[in-house]
Simulated scan of single mutants.
Amino acid sequence: MSYPSPTSRSAAGTLLASTAALLSLGLVAPATAAAANGSGTATEKQAPHATTAVLDLDGAGRTPVIRGADRAYDTASIVKVDILAALLLEAQDAGRHLTAAERKLAEPMIRRSDNAAANTLWRAIGRAPGLAAANKRLGLTETTGGSGPRWGLTKTTAGDQIRLLRAVFDDAGTAKKGRGALDAQSRAYVRTLMNKVVPEQTWGVSAFPGSAAGQALKNGWLQRNTTGLWDVNSIGQVTVKGHRYLVAALSNGSASMSDGVSLVERAVRDAAA
């Protein structure tokens, strides 16, 4: 799948709105408007880099195939899946469902990548310490929450994102009671939202060759203050010939968001080879 999508006008509007919100958090460079339409240039030389991890949920193994160095990347908005998982664990521990107010924030946070909703829920889970507590239960070992309000600067690896995706999509051995992992209802809720991402944000892991329609995914994009370069990431589940694949593609160093999307989609296609 190439970028921009057929809904490029809508995508551009969504990007500009998201970028403005990130600017208010100090997560993007001031010259965002030019970068958002692809005309920005990097202030430092840095080669773009990508890492992918793929796990066949219906295969015999449980170890993902990783291409590229499994080093830490900024999450940008893919951390919103982790934030929602942490919120759901808190609700499970209290023996309750999400409130209407929590759902009103969670749904746009995943479906439209709403940053204001993420800000509120990041505070609700206790920011980085709350994320760390949830991730310990979910089996993530290489993810560190961003400092203060900067959830987009959470660090993670492609391998750890597969662990997060397993917590959401892998039913085998994950249905625990008490202070365990996500229960079946929580997993279904996250899956439903990831299946309903707005069309202009369905690039990324959807480029996996042979994947059927209706993939569940979450993408993230972020221009760094220090370099003007872009972090662009995509995580999710795709189905190919009856097999469910968990896919994580993380990247940094792109001169524009569109370059980053192209890099991620090339990496996803290569990972399927």
Rank of each mutant, 00 (worst) to 15 (best):
T7C: 09
T52Y: 12
R127V: 10
A273F: 11
Q223S: 08
L165G: 07
A116Q: 10
L182Y: 14
A53C: 07
A172D: 14
R111H: 04
V65P: 11
V54L: 06
A207W: 03
K196H: 12
E90R: 14
A29T: 03
R179G: 13
G130A: 05
A11K: 07
L140D: 07
T120S: 15
T32E: 14
S256Y: 15
L229A: 15
A86G: 14
T63D: 13
L89P: 13
D58N: 06
L25E: 00
L121G: 11
T154Y: 01
Y189E: 05
K176P: 03
T144S: 08
Q185R: 15
I110C: 08
L25T: 02
R179C: 14
K155R: 10
N233R: 10
P149L: 01
Q237Y: 02
A132I: 08
T120D: 12
Y73L: 11
F208A: 09
G159C: 05
Q161S: 15
P4N: 02
L87E: 05
L87G: 15
G146P: 06
M1F: 11
N252I: 15
Q237E: 14
N37Q: 05
A172C: 15
D58S: 06
V205R: 02
L27Y: 13
Y245P: 03
G95I: 07
L57F: 02
R163W: 07
A69I: 04
D171G: 12
L250P: 09
V268W: 03
S2I: 12
